[in-house]
């Protein structure tokens, strides 16, 4: 496990995001200006990074570059791509973190490749059998000292079939993460099921419910239903990777459909347009509150090193914030917190 370092180095997988290397370099440059204790290790095509850096305001004392000549594209199959491209930026970045050259990894590239690279190079925390991919979702409620409007859902795709033991570990990991990142002293943790009653759901969920109810040090509130996700009833929602991924995609689909309907309404009728215009300041406020770029990214939990997966569409600000989230997780020894949580 990585101890508490004085200076934190974050390895950025520069290549492979939707906006190309420039946005990631800009994000790291922004981080170098804003956070003196964080150093950025940019992993990717050196000439491309150098050209971008030379024309961006940055602090050269806080940035270094590691050349990686290949990268995994968004549309590539992770396993095949990593086997074919062992020197891809995400693989090299994960290796550098494992070797101690950096304390955490941030990538806005192919999620599967990122998770697989971590599986190959990082170790699972003792007591964790499988890693979980978490994501944040904007909700009606706010939580923690940061007044965070985001709740954490895990797993959303790393472990398709989770056992009761895995779900318990996910709950502990999610709780530790929310405590550290959202500064939420006692985050409310719940299992996603088809009813709030303890006996509802498949056997693994029922068993996990029993075990979580008996755990001290965890603010387990029981089961929640899908409807509770956007309501923000709890701070951490635990499920397996299959259900989590279906939920996530459905929530994204609903969001996109609402936006399309709003655009349709705007074009269709003058009255509707006027109505939307009157609501515009409120909509802007809502956008501010639920702006995922301020969160930066979501973690892969369970490994001895930190991996923050930034959204593929991340711009510089989101990348910089993902770097800050990663640094915060390192500084607050997230791995140790998870390990201690599992021991209780």
């Amino acid at each position: 496990m990585v101890g508490k370092p004085q200076h934190i180095t974050i390895a950025f997988d520069v290549m492979g995001s939707d906006h190309g290397p420039l946005e990631v370099v800009r994000g790291a440059a922004q981080l170098s200006l804003e956070s003196p204790h964080i150093h950025a290790l940019l992993v990717g095509d050196r000439p491309v990074i150098d050209e971008a850096l030379a024309s961006i305001k940055h602090n050269g004392e806080r940035i270094s570059v590691h050349h990686a000549g290949d990268f995994v594209g968004m549309d590539e199959k992770p396993g095949e791509a990593l086997a074919r491209k062992p020197e891809s930026s995400v693989a090299v970045a994960a290796r550098l973190v494992a070797e101690g050259e950096a304390h955490a990894l941030v990538s806005a590239g192919n999620t599967g490749a990122g998770v697989l690279a971590c599986k190959r190079h990082f170790q699972l925390i003792p007591g964790v059998r499988r890693a979980a991919l978490a994501t944040v979702y904007p909700t009606r409620g706010v939580r923690g000292a940061k007044q965070d409007p985001f709740s954490l859902i895990l797993d959303v795709g790393a472990t398709v079939e989770a056992t009761a033991e895995d779900l318990v570990a996910f709950a502990v990991m999610g709780s530790a993460y929310a405590r550290i990142i959202s500064r939420n002293e006692r985050p409310k943790v719940a299992l996603l099921s088809n009813g709030v009653e303890p006996q509802k759901g498949p056997p693994r969920v029922v068993e996990a419910h029993q075990r979580l109810s008996q755990m001290s040090g965890l603010n387990f509130t029981g089961n929640v239903e899908g409807i509770d996700i956007p309501r923000g009833t709890v701070d951490v929602i635990v499920t397996d990777g299959f259900v989590g991924n279906v939920c996530l995609k459905m929530l994204e689909g609903v969001h996109d459909t609402v936006m399309e309907l709003a655009q349709y309404a705007y074009k269709e009728s003058l009255r509707w347009r006027a109505g939307l215009a009157m609501l515009s300041s409120g909509i802007e406020r809502l956008k501010d509150i639920t702006d995922w770029e301020q969160y930066g990214g979501a973690p892969i939990l369970g490994f001895d090193r930190i991996f923050i997966k930034a959204h593929g569409r991340s711009k510089a600000r989101a990348i910089a914030n993902a770097g800050k989230v990663a640094a915060k997780a390192v500084a607050n020894e997230l791995g140790t917190a998870i390990q201690e949580g599992l021991a209780k």
Binding site: H7, H39, D50, E61, R62, I63, S64, V65
Partner: peptide
Amino acid sequence: GHNIITLSNSFQDLLRR
């Protein structure tokens, strides 16, 4: 408050140029 990291990053910055 300079350290190994800032100095070696400074060195590499010049090499990259």
